[in-house]
């Protein structure tokens, strides 16, 4: 098992969570959204299960390791080597695709924002992220990181405030319509 943190703000924000979870698994950091781009993923959590030969057996969004069915399927796969039928049934035959021009431009701005963050230019980074998300509004890896960087209190002080997130999304969706 390997966990990969999709965190533009780096190890500083990501590692406390793994420590809190008492994780003994390998933990990697994807600060530059490399996985998101290569795998055509715009959100987390996502599970990607790969066999001994490096072939995909399951890609699944909204993955929950505490889900009993998922655990049973994982055990079945690990012990028998056979891909569980539910995984085959759920397979959509999706193919990797290249980014659209807008997605590419959003990513360029996202990468620039990370550099600005590292330079301590937080306000500039936020402005860049605001330009990025409107180009790719369904990319939650960009959009929610903008929220987290601009409003750390809503993400890093105890409980995550989902009510605030829904309101924020509604406010932005109104802006996007204009």
């Amino acid at each position: 098992m390997v966990v990969i943190a999709q965190d533009a703000q780096g190890a500083e924000v990501a590692s406390p969570w793994v420590e809190k979870a008492g994780g003994t698994y390998r933990a990697l950091l994807d600060q530059h959204n490399a996985i998101g781009k290569a795998y055509n993923v715009k959100f987390v959590p996502v599970g990607i299960f790969v066999d001994e030969e490096g072939r995909l057996v399951r890609s699944v969004g909204s993955v929950n390791i505490d889900n009993g069915t998922l655990r049973e399927e994982l055990v079945e796969w690990i012990t028998s080597g056979a891909v569980p039928s539910a995984w085959r049934d759920a397979d959509k035959g999706a193919k990797p695709r290249v980014l659209t021009a807008d997605e590419q431009e959003a990513d360029t701005k996202f990468q620039r924002a990370i550099v600005l963050l590292k330079q301590g230019k937080r306000e500039d980074a936020i402005a860049e992220l605001k330009r990025a998300y409107v180009l790719d509004p369904k990319n939650w890896l960009i959009r929610k990181q903008l929220w987290a960087i601009e409003n750390p209190g809503m993400f890093y002080d105890g409980k995550v405030d989902y009510r605030w997130q829904k309101e924020q999304m509604a406010r932005e969706n109104e802006e996007l319509k204009k």
């Binding site: 795998y39 996502v46 072939r55 890609s59 505490d66 193919k95 990797p96």
Partner: peptide, 28 residues
């Protein structure tokens, strides 16, 4: 906890729940 419970993105936008990969592919 980081790997448990309800997914916030799912709560917000169920239709984005898609991954651009399929069984048998060698992932990037």
């Amino acid at each position: 906890h980081i790997l448990s419970g309800e997914d916030s993105v799912k709560t917000l936008e169920p239709e984005v729940n898609d991954v651009g990969l399929s069984i048998g592919q060698v992932p990037p």
